[in-house]
Amino acid sequence: MDSGLIDQRALAQARAELGANFVRILGYFREDGLKSLLAIEKAMREQNAVAMVLPAHTLKGESRQFGADTLADIAEGIELIARKCVETRDEPTEALEHVARLRPTFNATLALLDRDSNPLAQRKANGFGKRPVAL
Protein backbone atom coordinates (compact mmCIF):
# COMPACT_ATOMS: atom_id res chain seq x y z
CA MET A 1 0.00 0.00 0.00
CA ASP A 2 2.97 2.31 0.44
CA SER A 3 3.76 3.01 -3.20
CA GLY A 4 2.59 6.46 -4.11
CA LEU A 5 1.34 7.42 -0.66
CA ILE A 6 3.96 10.14 -0.21
CA ASP A 7 5.12 12.72 -2.74
CA GLN A 8 8.81 12.70 -1.85
CA ARG A 9 9.41 16.16 -3.35
CA ALA A 10 6.67 17.71 -1.23
CA LEU A 11 7.98 15.89 1.84
CA ALA A 12 11.51 17.14 1.18
CA GLN A 13 10.18 20.67 0.75
CA ALA A 14 8.26 20.44 4.05
CA ARG A 15 11.38 19.10 5.76
CA ALA A 16 13.45 21.98 4.37
CA GLU A 17 10.87 24.64 5.25
CA LEU A 18 10.22 23.32 8.76
CA GLY A 19 13.86 22.56 9.52
CA ALA A 20 14.37 21.62 13.18
CA ASN A 21 10.59 21.85 13.73
CA PHE A 22 9.83 19.06 11.25
CA VAL A 23 9.58 16.21 13.76
CA ARG A 24 7.51 18.31 16.19
CA ILE A 25 5.08 19.37 13.44
CA LEU A 26 4.88 15.78 12.23
CA GLY A 27 3.83 14.85 15.78
CA TYR A 28 1.06 17.46 15.60
CA PHE A 29 -0.03 15.97 12.28
CA ARG A 30 -0.24 12.55 13.92
CA GLU A 31 -2.36 13.89 16.81
CA ASP A 32 -4.59 16.17 14.73
CA GLY A 33 -4.93 13.57 12.00
CA LEU A 34 -6.13 10.96 14.46
CA LYS A 35 -8.67 13.43 15.90
CA SER A 36 -9.93 14.20 12.39
CA LEU A 37 -10.08 10.50 11.52
CA LEU A 38 -12.08 9.68 14.64
CA ALA A 39 -14.45 12.61 14.02
CA ILE A 40 -15.02 11.53 10.42
CA GLU A 41 -15.70 7.92 11.44
CA LYS A 42 -18.12 9.06 14.16
CA ALA A 43 -19.91 11.38 11.72
CA MET A 44 -20.18 8.50 9.24
CA ARG A 45 -21.72 6.22 11.86
CA GLU A 46 -24.18 8.97 12.77
CA GLN A 47 -24.80 9.86 9.10
CA ASN A 48 -23.95 13.48 9.97
CA ALA A 49 -22.60 15.26 6.91
CA VAL A 50 -22.19 18.57 8.75
CA ALA A 51 -19.84 16.97 11.28
CA MET A 52 -17.74 15.48 8.47
CA VAL A 53 -16.84 18.67 6.64
CA LEU A 54 -14.35 20.36 8.97
CA PRO A 55 -12.30 17.29 10.01
CA ALA A 56 -12.10 16.14 6.37
CA HIS A 57 -11.01 19.63 5.29
CA THR A 58 -8.41 19.78 8.08
CA LEU A 59 -7.02 16.33 7.31
CA LYS A 60 -6.82 17.19 3.62
CA GLY A 61 -4.76 20.33 4.21
CA GLU A 62 -2.43 18.85 6.79
CA SER A 63 -1.84 15.78 4.64
CA ARG A 64 -0.87 17.88 1.63
CA GLN A 65 1.69 19.75 3.78
CA PHE A 66 3.64 16.49 4.19
CA GLY A 67 3.12 15.24 0.63
CA ALA A 68 0.57 12.64 1.75
CA ASP A 69 -1.44 13.09 -1.43
CA THR A 70 -3.35 9.80 -1.34
CA LEU A 71 -4.59 10.54 2.17
CA ALA A 72 -5.40 14.12 1.16
CA ASP A 73 -7.33 12.92 -1.89
CA ILE A 74 -9.46 10.56 0.22
CA ALA A 75 -10.15 13.32 2.76
CA GLU A 76 -11.03 15.70 -0.07
CA GLY A 77 -13.48 13.17 -1.49
CA ILE A 78 -15.15 12.90 1.91
CA GLU A 79 -15.25 16.67 2.26
CA LEU A 80 -16.82 17.17 -1.17
CA ILE A 81 -19.45 14.49 -0.59
CA ALA A 82 -20.24 15.89 2.86
CA ARG A 83 -20.57 19.46 1.53
CA LYS A 84 -22.90 18.26 -1.20
CA CYS A 85 -24.98 16.36 1.34
CA VAL A 86 -25.20 19.44 3.57
CA GLU A 87 -26.53 21.44 0.63
CA THR A 88 -29.02 18.76 -0.42
CA ARG A 89 -29.83 17.68 3.15
CA ASP A 90 -28.97 14.09 2.33
CA GLU A 91 -27.17 11.51 4.44
CA PRO A 92 -23.53 10.99 3.45
CA THR A 93 -23.86 7.29 2.58
CA GLU A 94 -21.86 7.91 -0.60
CA ALA A 95 -18.83 8.71 1.59
CA LEU A 96 -18.72 5.24 3.15
CA GLU A 97 -16.24 3.82 0.63
CA HIS A 98 -13.88 6.76 1.23
CA VAL A 99 -14.24 6.55 5.00
CA ALA A 100 -13.48 2.82 4.90
CA ARG A 101 -10.19 3.54 3.08
CA LEU A 102 -9.25 6.41 5.38
CA ARG A 103 -7.90 4.59 8.47
CA PRO A 104 -5.67 2.07 6.65
CA THR A 105 -4.31 4.84 4.43
CA PHE A 106 -3.73 7.10 7.44
CA ASN A 107 -1.87 4.33 9.30
CA ALA A 108 0.26 3.38 6.27
CA THR A 109 1.05 7.03 5.60
CA LEU A 110 2.15 7.64 9.18
CA ALA A 111 4.34 4.53 9.08
CA LEU A 112 6.09 5.87 5.97
CA LEU A 113 6.46 9.37 7.40
CA ASP A 114 7.90 7.92 10.61
CA ARG A 115 10.32 5.78 8.65
CA ASP A 116 11.38 8.67 6.43
CA SER A 117 11.76 11.12 9.30
CA ASN A 118 13.77 8.92 11.68
CA PRO A 119 17.48 9.25 10.84
CA LEU A 120 18.34 6.21 12.99
CA ALA A 121 15.90 4.00 11.12
CA GLN A 122 17.48 5.03 7.83
CA ARG A 123 20.84 3.56 8.73
CA LYS A 124 21.96 -0.04 8.87
CA ALA A 125 25.05 -1.58 10.28
CA ASN A 126 27.71 -2.49 7.75
CA GLY A 127 29.22 -5.26 9.88
CA PHE A 128 30.86 -5.30 13.29
CA GLY A 129 33.11 -2.32 13.94
CA LYS A 130 32.23 -0.63 10.70
CA ARG A 131 30.55 2.70 10.39
CA PRO A 132 26.77 2.60 9.62
CA VAL A 133 25.92 3.58 6.10
CA ALA A 134 22.88 5.50 4.88
CA LEU A 135 20.38 3.41 2.96
Rank of each mutant, 00 (worst) to 15 (best):
residue 19 G to Y: 02
residue 10 A to S: 15
residue 46 E to G: 03
residue 105 T to N: 05
residue 82 A to K: 02
residue 55 P to T: 04
residue 83 R to K: 10
residue 79 E to T: 04
residue 79 E to S: 05
residue 32 D to T: 15
residue 28 Y to R: 14
residue 123 R to F: 03
residue 9 R to H: 12
residue 36 S to R: 07
residue 39 A to D: 14
residue 55 P to Q: 05
residue 9 R to K: 14
residue 50 V to I: 12
residue 131 R to D: 06
residue 130 K to R: 14
residue 28 Y to C: 11
residue 107 N to S: 14
residue 54 L to T: 15
residue 59 L to C: 09
residue 52 M to V: 04
residue 100 A to I: 13
residue 13 Q to E: 14
residue 5 L to S: 09
residue 73 D to P: 02
residue 10 A to D: 07
residue 76 E to M: 12
residue 63 S to M: 07
residue 98 H to M: 15
residue 131 R to P: 09
residue 67 G to C: 11
residue 69 D to L: 10
residue 14 A to C: 13
residue 21 N to I: 00
residue 78 I to C: 02
residue 39 A to M: 07
residue 55 P to D: 07
residue 14 A to R: 01
residue 37 L to H: 05
residue 33 G to V: 02
residue 67 G to T: 02
residue 19 G to R: 04
residue 98 H to R: 12
residue 23 V to W: 07
residue 12 A to Q: 14
residue 95 A to D: 08
residue 9 R to G: 06
residue 14 A to S: 13
residue 18 L to G: 10
residue 78 I to T: 04
residue 94 E to L: 14
residue 84 K to C: 03
residue 31 E to A: 14
residue 64 R to H: 00
residue 78 I to A: 05
residue 97 E to D: 12
residue 20 A to F: 03
residue 77 G to Y: 08
residue 40 I to R: 08
residue 113 L to D: 12
residue 111 A to S: 15
residue 16 A to F: 04
residue 63 S to C: 04
residue 80 L to V: 11
residue 13 Q to K: 10
residue 72 A to S: 13
residue 75 A to D: 09
residue 129 G to V: 10
residue 25 I to M: 15
residue 110 L to K: 06
residue 14 A to T: 06
residue 122 Q to S: 08
residue 74 I to N: 05
residue 15 R to W: 03
residue 121 A to V: 00
residue 67 G to L: 03
residue 112 L to H: 04
residue 43 A to N: 04
residue 79 E to Y: 06
residue 6 I to V: 07
residue 46 E to N: 14
residue 26 L to M: 08
residue 37 L to N: 07
residue 4 G to S: 05
residue 15 R to G: 03
residue 22 F to C: 07
residue 46 E to P: 00
residue 127 G to C: 02
residue 65 Q to R: 09
residue 68 A to L: 09
residue 109 T to S: 13
residue 75 A to P: 01
residue 81 I to F: 00
residue 104 P to G: 05
residue 25 I to T: 15
residue 70 T to R: 14
residue 108 A to Q: 11
residue 14 A to D: 11
residue 68 A to Y: 04
residue 73 D to H: 13
residue 45 R to I: 00
residue 86 V to K: 11
residue 38 L to H: 03
residue 45 R to C: 10
residue 28 Y to T: 12
residue 85 C to H: 03
residue 31 E to D: 15
residue 29 F to P: 08
residue 78 I to R: 09
residue 15 R to N: 07
residue 18 L to E: 07
residue 71 L to I: 02
residue 69 D to I: 05
residue 110 L to Y: 03
residue 85 C to T: 01
residue 135 L to V: 04
residue 42 K to A: 15
residue 131 R to C: 03
residue 8 Q to A: 10
residue 7 D to A: 10
residue 130 K to S: 08
residue 64 R to Q: 13
residue 37 L to S: 08
residue 79 E to R: 11
residue 87 E to R: 13
residue 17 E to V: 01
residue 117 S to I: 09
residue 116 D to N: 08
residue 90 D to K: 11
residue 32 D to K: 12
residue 19 G to T: 00
residue 86 V to E: 11
residue 67 G to V: 04
residue 133 V to P: 01
